[in-house]
């Protein structure tokens, strides 16, 4: 699979990483090289093989419905770049 500049620009937008136009060409080449190498997986016939998400063989543990957390606003906001009046803030969003 060879990625073009437009595709790289699109995935960079999806990933919210600003990539200067001047870097797109180089990046497209690099990513294409990696994907080309990855595509050797196509050699393997995986028909009927179950996909594996994780290796742990047990039931999903469940917690009791008890309030054990919260009321730690100072901790929650302690590292925030621009907190205000108990809120996180971001540049204004127009909906």
């Amino acid at each position: 699979m060879s990625l073009d500049k437009a595709t790289v620009a699109h995935i960079a937008t999806l990933a919210r990483i600003k990539i200067p136009d001047s870097d797109l060409e180089h990046l497209a080449g690099e990513l294409s090289q990696i994907l080309g190498w990855i595509e050797q997986l196509g050699e393997v016939d995986t028909t009927g093989v179950e996909p594996m998400t994780g290796v742990v063989q047990m039931d999903l543990p469940r917690r009791a419905d008890v309030v054990t957390d919260g009321n730690i606003r100072d901790k929650v906001l302690a590292n925030a770049p621009e907190p205000a009046h108990g809120f996180f803030t971001v540049p204004k969003v127009v909906e």
């Binding site: 009321n71 606003r73 009046h85």
Partner: peptide, 25 residues
């Protein structure tokens, strides 16, 4: 209807002060 959130132990009550019913999760 539950006391705590789906994946954390913070409360679900309506109308609390901002960011007080928030766990680190």
């Amino acid at each position: 209807v539950s006391n705590a959130k789906l994946f954390s132990g913070a409360a679900t009550e309506f109308g609390a002060e901002p960011n007080t019913q928030v766990s680190l999760v």
